[in-house]
Nucleic acid binder design. Structure first.
Length: 557
RNA sequence: GCAGGCGUAGUGUAGUCUGGCAGCACAAGGGCCUUCCAAGCCCUUAGCCCGGGUUCAAAUCCCGGCGCCUGCACCA
């Protein structure tokens, strides 16, 4: 493990950013607690996310349940993976899907249960296709956590928040007053029963996601909003490495314009979180790497000590999800594409002549008449299915009339662009990119930006006596009153207190000294430069708030 | 899940081979001292991952479990 990662893990636990969950019971792999600092840091990241992606673009937020019905996950394609059995080669360690190995050997291998697979492998002497080694007993491979709702209804914990958005498409579409493009954002937990989660926050079984489903008309390239033309570091699936602006990338048709739009926003977002943009790139998935629902996917990757890690994926899901949910639910999940001007369409309609139909079809005549009225006439014989039989309707039993209809638009299934953010990974990357050791002393510092730092200010009395302490506490209370997370510390030397604050990324320290008693001023110290300015105590709450919101910068004081 | 390594105060570690009073540093709490960048002194709190076995005696040896790290595999 890299030194940086070791230091971060150590600080995270000792100072309270995060730690393995359930430690008193020996821990549970892939589950972490966020402590006081981590919980605040996560909130700050999400607040900025909402500002950048939800508020600025007028997206709609949604907050749905974690548990979803089985049928929804059958429709989404996730459940298909649920019942797979895997076998591994005892010799070379390669893993295979049991049903793949048994294809052509037994009939319907996918229908076998664990015992059946085990029996078939032994009976037919199936061995490792790579090295001929012996295979292990089959193991079920559950990617989703399953549970039961009520007595016996099968359900799953969501592996992504996306499905909860798709199934609400009609409501959200209406709430957006039926305009495209529009996006729905959801922040929440996702659950995946990983085989072997490792690397701390980078691979969790229960994780925090922030997802957007942008619903677009595939024939309309207009993007949500204007954007800053930043430089993107791209790695295409052809192996090309490019430095392009999103506008150039769109021009060269490297990706969908909506994807380029989100790339620009992501770069800006990561920058505002303190991620080093030199260590950010977008990597296009290889065809075989694409998820079952995806047509094109670009991962935003950040370089950390263990290599490039995916923190955000932008997937072009096409109409996969809405189409599939339409099939399984039987509900209409379409949008309307309005014509610039309503079109007048001439439709040939049928008018039933009851005096002929009546005697001919008796009881069925009424039903047939209704069906004829609702039909569009196409040249040729008219046939109707009634009581399971096709019946030819004689020409004299109807008249053809031409009706004019005004059509405002046509219905279609919107396409979906999905930027999906792994909040835990972003949080970890921020910690790594923020971490450094002071050149002179080697003391550890997190250079967290004021906006995201969990604690914004620390207030110290130079000495914990002579009323310096009471004045410091007064100042602390004023700052807290003003909504700025802060703490008081009078233990140890002043230098130790600065160091303690630096280690958890407190950007500003306020020190009450003997001059404070004379002229009502205090010093304020900026973390990274260790520079100090002297300010009036009365001005502190306002100035500190502006510093924390990054409206002013320390050097300008 | 496999292979290898590992698990000792809040954190980092020594001790494990060769069984015999569990030690150090930092942190934390209290006190003295101290007028701006982890000073010093005194005191205190606090630990052998869990379970079983062997033994007069287990942090140490054996078995099982849990967890972590690295590699393989997996990561829609």
């Amino acid at each position: 493990m890299s030194d940086t990662r070791i230091s971060i893990m150590e600080i995270a636990k000792r100072r309270g950013f995060y730690w393995k969950a359930y430690e008193i019971y020996g821990g549970l792999g892939g589950f972490y607690d966020y402590g006081p600092l981590g919980a605040m840091l996560k909130e700050n990241i999400l607040r900025i996310w909402k500002e950048e992606f939800v508020i600025k673009d007028g997206l709609l937020m949604l907050d749905g349940p974690n548990i979803g019905p089985e049928l929804m996950y059958i429709a989404s394609g996730h459940a298909e993976k649920f019942a797979d059995y895997m076998v591994r080669c005892k010799k070379c360690g390669h893993v295979f899907r049991a049903d793949e190995l048994l294809k052509g050997v037994v009939e319907n291998p996918e229908k076998l249960d664990k015992k059946g697979i085990s029996k078939a492998i032994k009976e037919y002497g199936i061995r490792c296709p790579d090295c001929g080694g012996e295979l292990t007993e089959p193991e079920s491979f559950h990617l989703m956590f399953s549970t039961t709702v009520g007595l016996d209804k099968r359900a799953f914990l969501r592996p992504e928040t996306a499905q909860g958005i798709f199934v609400n498409f009609p409501i959200m579409y209406r709430l957006n007053r039926e305009k495209l493009p529009f996006g729905v954002a959801q922040i929440g937990k996702g659950f995946r029963n990983e085989i072997s989660p490792r690397q701390g926050l980078l691979r969790l079984r229960e994780f925090n996601m922030a997802e957007i489903e942008l619903f677009v008309d595939p024939y309309d390239d207009s993007i949500l909003n204007d954007f800053e033309d930043v430089e993107l570091h791209l790695l295409t699936r052809n192996g090309e490495e490019l430095k392009l602006s999103p506008k150039e990338a769109i021009g060269r048709k490297i990706m969908n314009p909506h994807i380029a739009y989100y790339m620009a926003k992501i770069v800006k977002f990561l920058d505002s979180l303190g991620i080093d943009l030199k260590r950010v790139r977008f990597r296009q998935h290889f065809k075989e790497e694409l998820a079952h629902y995806s047509q094109d996917t670009w991962d935003c990757e950040i370089l950390i000590s263990s290599g490039w890690v995916e923190v955000t994926g932008i997937a072009d899901r096409g109409d996969y999800d809405l189409k599939s949910h339409t099939t399984y639910s039987g509900k209409d999940l379409t949008a309307i594409r309005r014509f610039k001007e309503p079109k007048k369409i001439q439709i040939k309609k049928l008018r039933p002549r009851m005096e002929i139909l009546g005697p001919m079809f008796k009881k069925d005549a009424k039903k047939i008449a209704e069906m004829l009225e609702n039909m569009e006439y196409i040249e040729g014989d008219v046939e109707i299915e009634i009581n399971g039989k096709n019946v030819k309707i004689p020409k004299d039993a109807y008249e053809i009339k031409i009706e004019e209809e005004v059509v405002g638009g046509e219905r279609f299934i919107p396409h979906v662009i999905e930027p999906s953010f792994g909040v835990d990974r972003i949080l970890y990357a921020i910690l790594e990119h923020s971490f450094y050791e002071r050149e002179d002393t080697g003391y550890k510092v997190l250079k967290l930006k004021p906006k995201i730092a969990p604690i914004k200010a620390a207030v110290f009395p130079l000495m914990a006596k002579d009323d310096l302490d009471t004045l410091a506490i007064e100042i602390l209370n004023k700052i807290r009153e003003n909504g700025v997370p802060s703490y008081y510390d009078d233990s140890g030397s002043i230098g130790r207190r600065y160091a303690r604050a630096d280690e958890i990324g407190v950007p500003f320290c306020i020190t009450v000294d003997y001059e404070s008693l004379k002229d009502n001023t205090v010093t304020i110290r900026e973390r990274d430069s260790a520079n100090q300015k002297r300010l009036k105590i009365d001005d502190i709450p306002k100035i500190l708030k502006d510093l924390v919101e990054e409206l002013i910068d320390f050097e300008s004081l």
